[in-house]
Every structure is written in structure tokens, then in C-alpha cells.
Design a protein around this nucleic acid. Structure first.
Length: 546
DNA sequence: GCCGTTTTCGGCCCGACTGTTTTCAGTCG
């Protein structure tokens, strides 16, 4: 998948250069193409081979040709040409926070300042004094930016599972505040993207000042970067930026819709609204001065002639057209998951551990739990397992559960040899008679589950191929060795079932599970695409287990 | 440069905030 990333970055580079050259609409066109390519579930080469590049949103004739030029020659002449027109340092100037293309261009053209270092020198020499648009404050701000950027570069996006705990803590702290009505995490976090660049938090309250005071004082908040009447931007202790937006309760739906994004989705929505003589902003949908929707997201979409669209799919990749045709197709939800297929038993697990596990499963309404008794390398650890658990494993073997297997592979393992390494695997059903862990020999349909497939995410294609050939489900979720959302989309498109973790194991796994569900939803997975939404065919008949 | 159940040409989302200004430009999300 690195080809896609390379091409996306190339187009982002073209966009920046065009920005500096003063182009009006082309930069956004290239950025949109880049975003589109980044979220593609398939390698560009394959799409190009089928001659279907033009079907990708944001890619027309010119960009189609540039992609093909890149695929065949490894470079794009247009980009090289642009680069010769703009000194590299000017690009660095534009990437300083608060300094955009217009200012960078002015420095370059009017003051012959073509990089961060020359800018510093120009400021020290007083060359900015008296220049139109540069007062005392602005110059001090520039100086501070230059100091700051000397150290670490621009803030990177971080994996969503790493942002999860702090996001939850911030939301919980705000919810405790009197005068706060609703609190919602929006932005790419709500859309379940693999990475988040910042946290967008939406609060409804009639007293924004109080909310900002509370927020600024939270232990997670390091510095306040900006604060106005309706929004505040802070930097968190972990370096992540958080934007807090406060609106009145009546605007909740419109604001949530707006701050959830994505940008492309919102742009499409707003131009759709304009075509219908309406206007959409974070306060509502308006016909003239009359507000016709604002309280709930559903209302916003409905007044635009659309059904509600799940946040995870709001990327302008066809979801708006789909929503205009009727009720949006249902995608998998947490309540659809009726089983957990991938739980590791510690080698020293006791029968009590197993029954408390089953109790927890039952409390969540799960019908079965798949337990792995093996190490990551596939080596059996049965000897270390408590006798009663081991006995249960043996019994399950004796009753020959229908080809249930969990396939585990260490980094670098090749798909071909995997199934022979199948360790022992149990399916336990909560609520069975006491006297040892009950076993359900017949369970939901999958014959195998692929998980822990090593560190290389670019190899997911091979795993999907294996899943397809043996009829195995493949685990989706954050971290190495699981499918990300675009790989999961590819799985669904190719008839390979997904397995979604439920977070049964521990509190940390709760976050993993929520993120994993988000990935499955971003993939557009329907309930029937997810293997652990399926109910055991034998229903309540447990006697067969013995 | 892309895009179109009103368009193959003429559009291209919208508002908050900041710093600079006497009404706006630039940046950001």
C-alpha cells in the first residue's frame, strides 16, 4: 500500500506548490485527490490496471494521467517543474503554524525571504517593521513560532487507540460539570479513523465561559493556545491538540454534524443544500432566516433529503448518493455482536477464572466465547493449563468440534504452513450447567479465525487471500496483526468475513473493541459480514456438548 | 483540476478567531 501513500504525498506536495504560486482551486483539487487515494482500500496499480482510476472521487483526466506517469516512471514531471519554481525553504515557511501560503509568498516575493532561517534574520534585522500587515504582535508571534519549530516538527497524527483514554477522560470531566448538557467527541475520532490529528469535543451549554474555565484547568491540559467566545484550543500533556466548541443545546445536532466532518463530506452537503436554496452551518439548516433543523443530526440530513449517515462513512465516497436513495443500509453495531472468538487464556488459568470469564460474557449478552490455549508462536502450553481446563480442551477435541481453529502466526510466518499449526481452541457457552466449563462443539459457521498475522500491514492482501481460500474470518482492529478499515473493506468486498473483538478480556481491551468496531463500520461491514454476529445453529441445546 | 437527475462551462462550504485594520485579509478546521 506504500504506492498509494507515495502518490498521495506527491499530490499534497503539488498542492502546496500551487498554493505558493497563487493558484485558486487547483490546490484543493489535488488535496482532495490525495485524501481519496489515502483512504483507498486497494492498491492504485490494480485500479490503474483495470483502467478505473477515474472512478475514484476527485480524480479526473489530468490526475489520472499523472498517476499513470508515476506508476510507469516513478516520477511526475509536472511536480518536478513546479519544484524548480519555488525555493524549498518557502515550503517550510508555509508549514509553520499560523503562516499560510499567502504570507509565505509575500515573504518570498516582496522581501526575498525564502526560508525559516532567512525569516529569523529578517526579523532580527528589523526588516519586517513597518511592513503592511505586520504589527508588533504579529512579529512576536512569528518569532515564537520559529523558536518552537526548531525542536520537534509539526504534531503528527497518532493512532486512535492511543487517543482513546485521554479523550474519554476529558469527556467524562466535562460531563461532571454543572451547566453542561451534552458532551460529544466529534471529528476523526467519531468517524473512527485509524489516526487522529487532534480531538474535537463538542459541548452544549448556555455558559461557555464556565465550560472553558473548567476545561483549561483539567490536569490533561498543558497550555491554552486560543480562546474565543465559542471555541477554545488547547495542547494536551501528550502533545495532542484538542478543540473544544460550545454551542447552545438547540444547535446540538447541527453542530455535531458539522464537527464530525469529514471536510469533504461537509462540503458536499453544503453545496447540496445550496442547490436546494438552503444553507447549512454549525447552527442549523436555514431557509432564508428561518432555521428548519438543528436539534438532531437526523433532522439535518432529513431536511436535505437524505437519510442519516453513520459517522464512520462520512468521507464523500458515495455515501451521500446512497443516503439520497432511501434508508441507509444498516452496518454492524455493538449490539449485533453475540460472541467473542479470540480470547487468550493465561497458562495458569483456573476453572474459577474460566467461570468468571463466562459470567462476564453472559453479563454482556454473549452466547459463546472462543478461547485460545497457545502461545503466539503456536507452541502449545497445555501442560501449564489447570487440569480442569485442560480436561475441557481434551473433551472438546474428543467431540471433534467442527473444524474450529484459531490460527496464530509469528512475524514472518507464511500463510501456507499456518493451518497445520492450529492450536487448541474452545468455544465456551455461558450459562451452561455447573461442574466445569461447558463446551459447545457446534458453533457459528466459521471454520477458522486468522489473527496475529505479524507486523507487516502491507501483507494483509496475502492474509485476505488465505482467509478466502480456507473460509476463515479475519480479525479487524487497531494494532499490528489485525485488519485496518481499508483492508477490512477489501475483505468485505471479497467475501471474507470479519471478526470483531468485543473487549471481554480487560478494560484496556474495551478501547480496542470500540476502535475495532469503528474500523468494521468504516469498512461498511453489514452484520452478516461479521462472523461473531452469527448465532450458534444449535440454539439452546447444550446436551450435545457432553 | 474536478464536476454535473436543473450545467460539458462556471461554479467551487462556511464561520471563528487573530491581528491588522477603520472594514478586512489570512489562517484554520
Amino acid at each position: 500500500m506504500t504506492t498509494n501513500q507515495d502518490v498521495a504525498e506527491l499530490f499534497l506536495g503539488i498542492a502546496d506548490l500551487l498554493d505558493l504560486l497563487g493558484e485558486r482551486f487547483k490546490p484543493e483539487a489535488y488535496r482532495r485527490a490525495a485524501r481519496s487515494i489515502e483512504s483507498l482500500s486497494e492498491d492504485l496499480r490494480a485500479v490503474a490496471a483495470r483502467d478505473e482510476l477515474r472512478s475514484i472521487p476527485g480524480i479526473g483526466e489530468a490526475i489520472d494521467q499523472k498517476i499513470r506517469e508515476y506508476l510507469s516512471t516513478g516520477r511526475v514531471e509536472y511536480y518536478e517543474r513546479l519544484r524548480q519554481q519555488v525555493p524549498a525553504g518557502v515550503l517550510d515557511l508555509m508549514r509553520l503554524p499560523g503562516l499560510g501560503p499567502k504570507t509565505a509568498r509575500r515573504f518570498w516575493v516582496e522581501l526575498q525571504v525564502d526560508g525559516p532561517e532567512p525569516l529569523r534574520a529578517a526579523i532580527d534585522a528589523g526588516r519586517l517593521n513597518g511592513v503592511r500587515g505586520f504589527g508588533e504582535k504579529k512579529i512576536a508571534q512569528l518569532r515564537a513560532m520559529l523558536e518552537e519549530s526548531k525542536g520537534a516538527g509539526a504534531a503528527e497524527r497518532i493512532p486512535i487507540e492511543r487517543a482513546y483514554p485521554v479523550a474519554r477522560r476529558l469527556a467524562a470531566a466535562l460531563r461532571r460539570e454543572a451547566g453542561v448538557h451534552e458532551v460529544a467527541l466529534a471529528g476523526s475520532f467519531r468517524r473512527g479513523r485509524e489516526t487522529v490529528g487532534d480531538l474535537d469535543i463538542l459541548v452544549t451549554s448556555d455558559e461557555p465561559e464556565m465550560v472553558f474555565d473548567t476545561f483549561s484547568a483539567l490536569p490533561e491540559v498543558r497550555t491554552v493556545r486560543m480562546r474565543g467566545g465559542t471555541k477554545e484550543t488547547v495542547v494536551l500533556a501528550n502533545g495532542l491538540q484538542a478543540d473544544l466548541r460550545v454551542v447552545e443545546p438547540d444547535s446540538f445536532g447541527a453542530a455535531l454534524q458539522y464537527f464530525t466532518g469529514s471536510k469533504d463530506h461537509n462540503v458536499r452537503l453544503r453545496s447540496l443544500a445550496r442547490d436546494r436554496g438552503l444553507k447549512v452551518n454549525e447552527y442549523g439548516v436555514f431557509r432564508g432566516d428561518e432555521r428548519i433543523a438543528s436539534r438532531a443530526e437526523e433532522d439535518v440530513y432529513r431536511t436535505l433529503g437524505l437519510s442519516w449517515i453513520p459517522p464512520e462513512l462520512r468521507e464523500d465516497r458515495g455515501e451521500i448518493e446512497l443516503a439520497s436513495k432511501g434508508p441507509f443500509p444498516r452496518i454492524v453495531e455493538g449490539r449485533d455482536l453475540v460472541g467473542e472468538l479470540h480470547l487468550h487464556l493465561r497458562p495458569d488459568a483456573t476453572a474459577e477464572d474460566v467461570s468468571s470469564l463466562l459470567g462476564a460474557a453472559k453479563a454482556r449478552g454473549l452466547l459463546y466465547v472462543g478461547v485460545v490455549v497457545a502461545t503466539v508462536s503456536g507452541e502449545e502450553v497445555a501442560q501449564a493449563v489447570a487440569p480442569e481446563v485442560l480436561a475441557a480442551v481434551r473433551r472438546s477435541r474428543a467431540s471433534r468440534p467442527r473444524a474450529y481453529a484459531v490460527v496464530e502466526i509469528g512475524p514472518g510466518g507464511t500463510p501456507a504452513s499456518v493451518l497445520e499449526m492450529a492450536p487448541e481452541y474452545l468455544v465456551l457457552r455461558p450459562g451452561a450447567p455447573s461442574g466445569g466449563p461447558p463446551i459447545a462443539p457446534s458453533g457459528p459457521a466459521p471454520v477458522a479465525l486468522l489473527a496475529h498475522f505479524g507486523g507487516d500491514r502491507t501483507a494483509t492482501g496475502a492474509w485476505l487471500g488465505l482467509g478466502r481460500s480456507v473460509g476463515a474470518a479475519v480479525e479487524v482492529g487497531p494494532g499490528e496483526g489485525r485488519l485496518d478499515s481499508s483492508a477490512a473493506r477489501a475483505a468485505c468486498e471479497n467475501g471474507v468475513a470479519l471478526a470483531v473483538p468485543t473487549g471481554l478480556g480487560s478494560p484496556e481491551e474495551d478501547a480496542t473493541a470500540e476502535v475495532a468496531l469503528g474500523f468494521a463500520r468504516r469498512a461498511g461491514a453489514r452484520p452478516e459480514d461479521v462472523v461473531n454476529t452469527r448465532r450458534p445453529p444449535t440454539g439452546g441445546n447444550r446436551s450435545k456438548a457432553r
